[in-house]
Design a protein around this nucleic acid. Sequence first.
DNA 1: AGGAAATAGTCTATTTTGGACTATTCCAAA
DNA 2: TTTGGAATAGTCCAAAATAGACTATTTCCT
Lengths: 94, 94
Amino acid sequence: MAQSKSIYSREYGVFLDLLRAERLAARMTQIDLAKKLKETQTFVSKCERGERRLDMIETRRFCIAIGANYPEFAAKLDAAIEQSAAAKRIAPRR
Amino acid sequence: MAQSKSIYSREYGVFLDLLRAERLAARMTQIDLAKKLKETQTFVSKCERGERRLDMIETRRFCIAIGANYPEFAAKLDAAIEQSAAAKRIAPRR
DNA sequence: AGGAAATAGTCTATTTTGGACTATTCCAAA
DNA sequence: TTTGGAATAGTCCAAAATAGACTATTTCCT
């Protein structure tokens, strides 16, 4: 099952969705990305599933490796979180 | 001494400088910020010194608590890292 | 179906963290 | 200058997160 361990917040989930979408948009596999980052596939997988949190700098490195613009990524993330918060307001969870 | 423990890329140092600068610009103490975040002063101190990493979402929360715009923060960070990289190119470390 | 590529999951030694408490630094008023 | 309080840093250690080799599953072709 997806995301069973450590992330938690809805916001972090939005981040993960965006991160993965960017890699896929660049038509890269986790192995491709891992090589560019000089990391393992396990590492990339864990990051994308939220089992390993990414800080601002690591995320920037991901963006660079993927060929995505980091400031734009952050802006998209911010907007997407706003969206998800709005959606939650309309259809509250509990 | 500052930053003797865990993070410590030049980039992360740039991030920390910016994060603290934003808090100070908002004229908030670590205790003020801690209260807004519902965290302890120790936590804020550790985050600002890089003893505790902040992920993308946590950083956004910091920005919101400080009253800073997150996408702008990311853009500033990106630019500042570029700067520091350029400086390093001119005056290499080793 | 069958195989290979892609991704997820497991395991454990190592590293990071949370937060109460303590120590230090800073700085303005006396 | 001293002094006192505000602000920040540092300590300790049980608990939680992480790394990465290895294995298992899932996904996609043909």
